[in-house]
């Protein structure tokens, strides 16, 4: 009996709910630590980023208008789908990062738990970050945190899945939409994650995932005028960080990077405080 030949997966981008190849037609090779070939993921271009921003901007109005309860449920649904694929993620991470499957599964479980932790924040943000303000006059005055718009992220190189989750979840839970650049060395879990998203009732365009070269794409993230905020926790090169901040000043992007993974501050850094005044009278 002949050995069964495996059906291998084509790893593509995730933009606007679809899985296109890079418009540039480019791919790059991913090898396991032992040097064996794994896959040819897309090498995203500046144009792919621009397409993804258009998709994210288009998705923003609907996503931010969804009730917080609804957003929380959709995020939780994503966790359910992740759980079902935990073993697949673990195998992928193990093959890419050269760790054993047990440790890889540990990372997957952490990522799922982290995602659930963020999901639960959706309807509690105003309680912790909003206020009613005692102004000296006959006015009702209150402040609410509100999603900023399109917030992009450069995910860290590793841990590939947990890093991706830490980048995406705090951005979208408040109502932002996002474009995330996955780990350049270990991009495959990000695309498998996109398959999870595609089956999780997430509106198209809320999360867009690019794979490619960090040093090529980061400057375009920084200078894009329709990106409101940028999480650069995944950037290690200090010169690149400086360049991003300088280019980001052109539209006063809110640019942040974080040490900690589980913090409401990661959510609130990509929200704006809106204060509303109304007179009180008969």
């Amino acid at each position: 009996m002949s050995e069964r030949i495996e059906v291998k997966k084509t790893y593509k981008l995730f933009i606007g709910g679809a899985f296109p190849r890079s418009e540039s037609g480019r791919t790059y090779e991913i090898f396991a630590p032992d040097g064996s070939f794994i896959a040819n993921p897309s090498l995203a271009s500046r144009k792919d980023l621009r397409d993804a921003v258009v998709a994210a901007r288009a998705a923003h109005a609907g996503w931010t208008a969804a009730t917080a309860y609804n957003r929380g449920q959709i995020l939780y649904r994503i966790a359910e789908m992740l759980e079902g694929r935990a073993d697949q993620f673990a195998r992928e991470i193990a093959s890419l990062e050269g760790i054993n499957e047990q440790d890889a599964l540990q990372e997957v479980h952490s990522a799922i738990d982290q995602w659930v932790w963020y999901a639960g924040w959706s309807d509690k943000l105003s309680s912790i970050a909003g206020s009613t303000n005692q102004v000296s006059g006959p006015f009702y005055n209150f402040t609410i945190p509100e999603a900023m718009g399109v917030v992009a992220a450069i995910a860290p190189e590793s841990p590939s899945l947990l890093g991706l989750v830490n980048a995406i979840a705090p951005i979208i839970v408040s109502g932002n939409t996002t474009i995330v650049l996955a780990s350049t060395r270990s991009p495959l879990p990000a695309i498998t994650f996109a398959e999870v998203l595609a089956t999780s009732d997430l509106p198209h365009g809320v999360i867009n995932i690019l794979t490619g070269n960090k040093s090529e794409l980061t400057p375009w993230f920084a200078s894009h005028m329709d990106i409101n905020g940028l999480d650069i926790s995944g950037l290690e090169d200090s010169q690149m960080v400086n360049d991003v901040k300088i280019a980001g000043a052109d539209n006063l992007k809110r640019i942040h990077s974080f040490h900690e993974s589980a913090s409401p501050q990661r959510i609130l850094s990509f929200m704006e405080a809106k204060t509303i005044w109304h007179p009180i009278g008969i």
Binding site: S131, N133, Q134, V135, S136, G137, F139, N141, T143, A273, K274, T275, I276, W277, H278, P279
Partner: peptide
């Protein structure tokens, strides 16, 4: 800052 049925109001307690 949104002023509804008023405008240009400021207060130390109001962000």
């Amino acid at each position: 800052v949104i002023w509804a049925n008023t405008f240009n109001k400021f207060d130390p307690a109001s962000p």
